[in-house]
């Protein structure tokens, strides 16, 4: 993205087209349905306000993910009580059979801490470990270790230890 930068409005519209559904999914990992719209709007507002300062040091996509994740993590911190309640009601290990896979995934995300949740959400969006590292400020190796730990946790909780 170095070089010619389109006018902020054009770049913003392009980002909404390419990342709109992604940010909505990302927000679903950090906010309940009733707050999701608000969180997504906060993400877009932060992106719009930061856009004039975009220097092209990272890909526009990585840059947008950074803002979205930072906004999402801030959103989580504003609502400590809700997270504590969510943690207190962390689900018992269950088998996935008969349950909506998407619901299981959302439940699993909610039980993770904000940083693990960010890494997992970006993994779910299909980002490579190096790209996740560029968003979080971690090395590729550190991201791989984190994802491996999250994977073990998921298996233990939902798939049973044999898999």
């Amino acid at each position: 993205m170095k070089g010619v930068m389109p006018a902020p409005a054009d770049a913003f519209l392009e980002l909404v087209r390419s990342h709109g559904p992604r940010l909505l999914r990302l927000a679903s990992g950090y906010a309940r349905a009733e707050d999701r719209r608000d969180l997504v709007q906060q993400m877009w507002l932060a992106i719009w306000r930061a856009l004039p300062g975009f220097r092209g040091d990272a890909a526009l996509s990585t840059w947008a993910y950074r803002i979205a994740i930072n906004t999402a993590v801030s959103h989580v911190r504003k609502d400590v009580r809700r997270r504590e309640q969510a943690a207190a009601s962390a689900p018992e290990p269950v088998a996935p059979g008969g349950r909506d896979e998407r619901a299981i995934l959302e439940e699993f995300l909610e039980a993770l801490g904000p940083v693990d949740r960010a890494a997992m959400a970006l993994y779910l969006e299909g980002l490579a470990a190096s790209d996740i590292g560029a968003v979080l400020g971690a090395t590729e190796g550190a991201v791989a270790v984190r994802l491996s730990r999250i994977k073990a946790l998921f298996k233990q909780r939902y798939l049973g230890s044999e898999r």
């Binding site: 409005a9 913003f12 519209l13 909404v16 087209r17 709109g20 559904p21 909505l24 999914r25 679903s28 997504v40 709007q41 877009w44 719009w48 996935p96 896979e101 998407r102 299981i104 995934l105 993994y123 779910l124 969006e125 299909g126 994977k151 998921f154 298996k155 939902y158 798939l159 898999r163």
Partner: peptide, 24 residues
């Protein structure tokens, strides 16, 4: 469902794409 299936489960959830002009 395996851990490797999760990205496709996640991305198959087709959230309605927002109207770019309205978001702007």
């Amino acid at each position: 469902m395996t851990f490797e299936d999760l990205p496709s489960v996640w991305q198959s959830d087709r959230e309605r794409a927002p109207d770019p002009e309205a978001v702007l």
